[in-house]
Design a protein around this nucleic acid. Structure first.
Lengths: 208, 208
DNA sequence: GTCTATAGTAGGATAGAC
DNA sequence: GTCTATCCTACTATAGAC
């Protein structure tokens, strides 16, 4: 498995994701936290500014509108997670292992560091302008294609009984929803959870 | 299977759910539609009033606050769907059939008549005041217990490999998420979908 | 790049006539 | 039970000094 930090570093170097230590990166992290906690509409620019210790007017030096902040949170989150997913797929051998790696990686992205931003992606979608939605959807297609390639391969091998599109969508819902109930300190690790999902899909470790 | 209309009628008679033909019922249906479409925060009281053909001030003769409307949408939706679920469970024979009936009924509630209100329940949760959240949670517990009883029975029979709580939560996510992608005219019926879910759970029709 | 001050607007809710 | 009129508050965004 490739180091996650090195993936982040190269994205930062390419200017695709903000440096988490920089001013912009810090604001986006706080924004994700607040949007997740209170919702985008209920979070004011004053809240956002206060969270990083500046006045609300100063925000507009970095972003032209409040919505641009929401868009940036979503765009950077997808970019980062697509890169992480790609690495997870590349590192796994069999298609079955690739699927397990994807599930594990998505659970990590939803319940780990980027969890707040991933939740924003799910719950604040409608607050994004139509233009921004179209742009984010393009990025999301790349991400989704990673899943479909693996699921279709499994389907071809006869391991998967259901339609890849339906399976992916069910998985999207099931995995996203963990954000509402999963707690790392609840005696269930993300590895446990991954195993339960794989088990629920009738794909337990028979081929390994 | 008990007639769904008769269940609705008895709830209306007991004053647990508003008559859909009455002024209050019509408003709640329009409210569900708007909250689902634009989100609760972006829906103004002027929008709500216009949707039923009155002025915004007149709304406050029926509800004291805008949030009370959101609460009413959620409360009545849970009451109705709990009753429908209960009927579905009672009508089925084996535990496996009860589970299938629950899945079918939840897909119906999410993608049928009450779909908009169910989506509101999922996506607008944070817009509810803490007091209202507590009240709705109590109702939700009754609903969830229906599922857990069936899943635990299946677990006891050795048919279910995973933890009932985890399974229910995965199902909640997977089924709720269908609201974002399922379209009845897409060549996939709700019965098809139910079967795929049951199949994905490794519980295909072996015991029937 | 951050501050202060404020323009401009829109929303929730109320009052009182009919 | 609905209308009109409007209060009051809170918000996004801007302007210009430092």
């Amino acid at each position: 498995m490739v180091n996650q930090d090195s993936i982040l570093c190269s994205l930062v170097a390419d200017n695709l994701v903000s440096d988490p230590a920089g001013a912009r990166g810090r604001l986006l992290r706080e924004a994700a936290r607040l949007f997740r906690e209170k919702g985008y509409e209920r979070t004011t620019v004053r809240d956002l500014a206060a969270a990083v210790g500046i006045q609300s007017g100063s925000l507009f030096h970095h972003f032209r509108t409040k919505e641009e902040i929401l868009k940036a949170v979503m765009v950077e989150t997808i970019r980062l997670n697509t890169a992480l997913m790609q690495a997870a797929v590349d590192a796994a051998g069999s298609h079955r292992d690739k699927l397990q790696a994807l599930i594990r990686a998505e659970l990590e992205s939803i319940n780990g560091q980027t969890g707040e931003a991933m939740a924003v992606l799910v719950f604040e979608w409608r607050s994004l302008s139509e233009d921004s939605q179209a742009y984010v959807l393009e990025l999301r297609d790349i991400y989704e294609q990673l899943w479909l390639d693996v699921l279709e391969a499994l389907r071809g091998e006869g391991v998967l009984a259901a339609d890849p599109f339906v399976v992916r969508r069910m998985l999207t819902g099931a995995l996203s929803w963990t954000v509402t109930w999963y707690r790392p300190d609840g005696g269930l690790t993300l590895d446990d959870l991954t195993e339960q999902v794989v088990a629920m899909m009738g794909m337990t470790n028979s081929g390994a």
